[in-house]
Design a protein around this nucleic acid. Sequence first.
DNA 1: CACAAAATATGATTTATGTCATGTTTTTAT
DNA 2: ATAAAAACATGACATAAATCATATTTTGTG
Lengths: 256, 256
Amino acid sequence: MWSISHKVVIVNSELHHIHWFINLPSSVMKRMQHTCDLKSCFLCRRCLPEWIPAVGAHQKNRHYRKGELIFAEGDAVDGIYFLYKGIVKVHKRWGDKQLILHFAGVGDMIGYRGLGENRTYPVTASALDDVIVCFIDAAFFEATLHANHQLTYSLMQFYANELQAAEQRMRNLAHMEVRGRIADTLIMLSRRFGQNSEGALNITLTRQDMASYSGTTYETFFRVLSELARKKIIKLSGKRISILKQDKLAELTAYS
Amino acid sequence: MWSISHKVVIVNSELHHIHWFINLPSSVMKRMQHTCDLKSCFLCRRCLPEWIPAVGAHQKNRHYRKGELIFAEGDAVDGIYFLYKGIVKVHKRWGDKQLILHFAGVGDMIGYRGLGENRTYPVTASALDDVIVCFIDAAFFEATLHANHQLTYSLMQFYANELQAAEQRMRNLAHMEVRGRIADTLIMLSRRFGQNSEGALNITLTRQDMASYSGTTYETFFRVLSELARKKIIKLSGKRISILKQDKLAELTAYS
DNA sequence: CACAAAATATGATTTATGTCATGTTTTTAT
DNA sequence: ATAAAAACATGACATAAATCATATTTTGTG
């Protein structure tokens, strides 16, 4: 009996996801709203209750139109942002090329890369959609860290995880073949943004942006995507990408 | 008088070390000794005085011979290490290739990459020399973090810096040409390990290891090194590499 | 000290991936 | 609605860097 439903799940990762959504803990559900409620974000969930009013007093909502920059590589660090609506791409430039480090979605922090010793943003953050963020200036954020040990500890863990992921990607950029990195990108998009009941990713990006995340050119990305579609591992319809065989995709990210 | 001993020093890298040692600021001096004195390391310098005895009780000195592994990629995380003697290379494998992430020297931490959510080391640490470390088990280290806010804050900041550096290298692996990455490697070695008065790096590594740090093959590394030597930007004599024109090297790491 | 193993040196060859060129379709802005 | 600008699609071609092959030198070890 289980083997049967098992099969359904594999073929249709859609149902799987709806199920997941319905069962979200209310704490996460609340994160879906469009402005700060002083309860849901990474920061508020880890602050002492008596500190929360101060957060309320310092927090500012900001809005950006599609294409606008939230900050640019080299800008002085002004603070940290929590994303409440839209998608933001975080990237580094090299001449006329770019490497995208992160597609930030609702609930994600932005600007945390500027909190080390170098007080200038090492990346650019640009709105891929209309975006709403909650902004907290650096001085108040630092005061918050000093007043809330639990937040500092969580942020430390967060950075540790990010570092681990970054170094994994370094290895992939150095040694994995492009096909593997592209498969990795698709898997990441599926994991972070989910798929609908037909297997289609719940996010649409330009091919250029997905290529820039994979560390390759548009043309190579396009060719590999076509190849995967030919092999029925994915399905393409316009901007929408559906993952048909997650396992085959995962195989491509393994050494052989 | 000093200039004379200076000259002696150069020829004999033994003596050279002594000289260097003598001129270090006292804060750094203390870090140079071969075992923990409960005062000098990243951890002790940031702990509350009343916590130090606990550190003393938990800290263990360990010794590794050249070539030995301190831990391997995939191993369960046991704790964190502070390096008191020798050089350790920290690397990730991909089939029969590797990417070196870090050459740890005296005073550096090792194993901190294992402190995120994934409790297995994402890297291998191997001794390039005879090595002495101070080991602190993960459970006690976490207790220490919870008891010492300043340490947690510093570690957070440390991770933030590492993340920034890692993402810079990601960009370089994706878009910079090999020549630039190799120049970058030489500059990093100079900055981290210093040069003697003739410009020679105070560290000797195999070409393969330097290539693996640069994200390329031995052959390509060798060819670029020869080219740089031909252009008198560096000088090669056996394993020793001297940097003659730091500025030319820096130019190679810029976009053109 | 000798001898095996590792590291170095270098030319020849291959290949994966980037670049260029061109046309079409889709999106965005007026 | 329509023009201009992005984004998409694909074939042809170029090339940086990897791979392969082979000889030499250095280093570590019984």
